[in-house]
């Protein structure tokens, strides 16, 4: 396992995502991408992104923010595209045309991962490609203007699940993609948050050092979509962890370990109240949604702790 990454040491390294990208001020995506690239920078890395905020904003012809080889081909296929790259790498290495040890990382939003890209992702993971797939989950199709996705939480007001007088925002729960990925019995699955940066860096660093398919799901606040204050990006990620909305854990070769347990689990309202997308939930007629939200979190957190205890 890789040694703990120190910021003093990391700050000496070149950040492999250059400034000048066109992502919004305060966007969580470049923070996550930057951390992922820093943690992986012991190796040469080739990255892929599907269509999405990160993709369109980091590479608009004639400019790119990527300091490493990077490919985008379409929206639903980052995993298949990178699987093709990784396979060509193995083919050329076998033929002696490449000698370097290269690592492959996809950095993709939740729309391209949970929904339209899940088939491609599932296939690539099942086939055992040696790559790390990082999802920066901001819980909606932000690039097209905040439409609900399979990652959008219950009750959220989005432009296609607007909170109206009859329908109070999204009426379905989000799907638990991390669990789905763990069910692929891949080498490594984890959930991380940029607020808990040391944990995130450690997970990425561990994942890239391992052979086989790896998946890390990273909560990535989007103040535009979450209707939150620009400066609260990291704060919101932290609250997601402290409320156990976004538990930090890893599943390594089938063994689950919770990597952060809040001393005191904060009520979900603390996370919800800073976000305009949940404002309507605080109206008396919608209180049941917050109750439901909290029950879901409590149940899932208990389940996760139980799962961990199986291996303790």
């Amino acid at each position: 396992m890789a040694a703990e990454l120190q910021l003093k040491e990391l700050a000496q390294r070149k950040v492999l995502l250059a400034p000048g990208h066109r992502l919004c001020a305060g966007c969580g995506a470049p923070i996550v991408a930057k951390m992922v690239l820093l943690a992986a920078s012991d190796y040469p890395v080739v990255a892929a992104s599907p269509t999405g905020c990160l993709e369109v904003s980091t590479c608009i012809s004639d400019y790119t923010a990527w300091e490493i080889p990077w490919i985008h081909s379409a929206f639903e296929n980052a995993a298949a595209t990178l699987a093709g790259v990784e396979t060509m790498y193995r083919a050329l290495k076998k033929k002696g045309k490449i000698d370097k040890e290269i690592k492959f990382i996809a950095i993709a939003g939740d729309g391209g991962t949970y929904d339209i890209g899940i088939q491609s992702l599932s296939g690539a993971m099942e086939r055992g490609h040696d790559l790390l797939y990082v999802c920066y989950d901001n819980g909606a199709y932000m690039n097209t203007g905040i439409q609900r996705s399979g990652a959008t939480p219950l009750g959220a007001d989005t432009t296609t699940s607007p909170a109206g007088s009859v329908i109070p925002g999204k009426t379905q729960r989000r799907k638990d993609l991390t669990k789905i990925m763990a069910a692929h019995n891949i080498t490594y699955t984890a959930q991380a948050s940029p607020s808990h940066w040391s944990d995130l860096l450690k997970k990425v660093s561990k994942a890239v050092s391992m052979k086989g398919p790896k998946f890390i799901n990273v909560i990535t606040p989007c103040h535009r979509g979450w209707r939150a204050r620009v400066e609260d990006t990291i704060l919101l990620a932290r609250l997601a962890v402290q409320t156990c909305y976004w538990p930090l854990y890893e599943v390594e070769n089938g063994i689950t370990r919770v990597t952060y347990k809040p001393r005191e689990k904060k009520p979900i309202e603390e996370f919800l109240k800073l976000q305009g997308r949940f404002k309507h939930l605080f109206a008396p007629e919608n209180e049941w949604i917050i109750k439901q939200f909290q029950e879901d979190i409590d149940r899932e957190w208990e389940r996760l702790l139980k799962e961990e205890s199986l291996y303790a």
């Binding site: 490919i71 639903e76 298949a80 699987a83 093709g84 790259v85 396979t87 060509m88």
Partner: peptide, 13 residues
Amino acid sequence: HSAMSACIGAATA
């Protein structure tokens, strides 16, 4: 869809 996507990744590689 993934066949052609993987071909594209591999050919670009």
